[in-house]
Amino acid sequence: MDFFPSEEHQLIQATARKLSKDLLEPNAEALDHGEGRDTLLANLKTLAENGFMGLNLAARYGGTEAGTVSFALAIEALARGCASTTVTVSVTNMVGEVIQAVGSDEQKAAYLPKLSDGTYPAGAFCLTEAGAGSDPSAMKTRAVKDGNHYVLNGTKLYISSAEYAGVFVVWAVTDPDAPKGKGISCFLVEADTPGLIISKAEKKMGQTGSATNEVVFEDCRIPATAMMGAENDGFRVAVGELAGGRIGVASLALGIANQAMETAKQYVKEREQFGRPLADMQGIQWMIADRETDLEAARLLILQAATLKDAGQPFSKAASMAKLFASEAAQRATYTALQLHGGAGYIRDYPLERYARDARITTIYEGTSEIQRLIIARETMKAV
């Protein structure tokens, strides 16, 4: 087992850290206050130009071909600077991967270069609905065949990057009489398609700089060639891509947590009470030790899942373990970091309260912690 990153991994990680520090971090506070959208879009373009929007895509489509381990390292590094920007990077990479995995040659050629080079600022997934969150097989959005077209009707919720996505991967029921989860298909819908409506923007607790919207389909007419993969096989595609997306969320959570703890460690070294630095006090040291152990364990779980995915091995259980542990560890780390700042951590002069709010969603999206436990238990019992 090799625990040492390759030269390519180190280069990608170092580049991501520099871009995170130079571009993302200076805009993070503005995004959190509802400003800085133009800078966000400019930063997304720069990230694309540096290869971060197609980390696991083939070079012939403008991708980096760097693999999942590089993806995880990059997302962790970028999230240190701005979680709102990084979630767009993570989701866009996964949109590219699903197109590469199940799209036709024509679909790959049409969309992957635009995701890779930043022509599209982002890609988006349209899966969740009001009655189909943890159970996406219960979705109600319909796609009805009409000659050489399909007509989409329905509403999707909590769609990341919807306001600036260039292409949407959309799941809809194509056979309502099929057993649950068996009659769902997957489509590619371009942003300017009539009948695709970007509706209300959600007002969120954290990651407020990342647009999250309701997306409505009203008699949205798309060519039959917009279907990805086989008809009625879309649910299998969704389940597979959610597993890959969990590596991204785990890495994002780890990045937020690491940045919070780095900020806290610097603070306790400088802050004095009772005539000595806080860092000299055993109680403080033990708090830091517990969180450092948490984050190192999270890092190893993430790299295990990413390595399995790159090797073409089953990785669903490993991805769920990484996502569960890293996201829960991020809650502990951000709140510990805030506590180490005392009253200063509770005011907006310091970024600790933003880190805590940004980390909170990582236990929810791409499958809640409770769903991850169900997946882990199910996969564990299969081997018994």
Rank of each mutant, 00 (worst) to 15 (best):
T88P: 05
V95D: 00
A110H: 12
A109E: 15
V102L: 09
G96M: 02
R80S: 08
Q107R: 06
L112Y: 05
Y111D: 14
V95M: 00
T92V: 02
C82W: 00
A79R: 11
N93Q: 08
T86P: 05
E97M: 15
S90F: 00
G96P: 07
N93S: 10
R80D: 03
T92Q: 06
L115H: 10
R80E: 14
L115I: 12
R80F: 01
A110C: 15
S84I: 04
L115P: 12
D105L: 07
V87C: 04
D105G: 11
D117V: 00
A101L: 12
L112W: 03
D105F: 03
A101D: 15
K114W: 07
A83C: 09
N93Y: 03
E106F: 05
C82E: 01
G96S: 05
T86K: 12
V87I: 14
A109K: 10
T86F: 01
T85A: 15
T92S: 03
D117K: 00
S84V: 08
T92K: 10
E97K: 15
V102Q: 11
C82H: 07
V87N: 11
S104T: 13
D117Q: 06
L112E: 12
E106T: 13
Y111M: 07
V98H: 12
L112K: 04
E97R: 15
S116E: 04
Q107S: 11
E106I: 12
Y111H: 15
T85G: 07
A110T: 14
A109H: 05
A110W: 01
V102E: 09
V98L: 15
V98S: 14
A83Y: 08
L112H: 09
M94E: 14
T88L: 08
E106M: 11
T85N: 10
I99K: 10
V91P: 03
A110F: 06
N93F: 02
D105C: 02
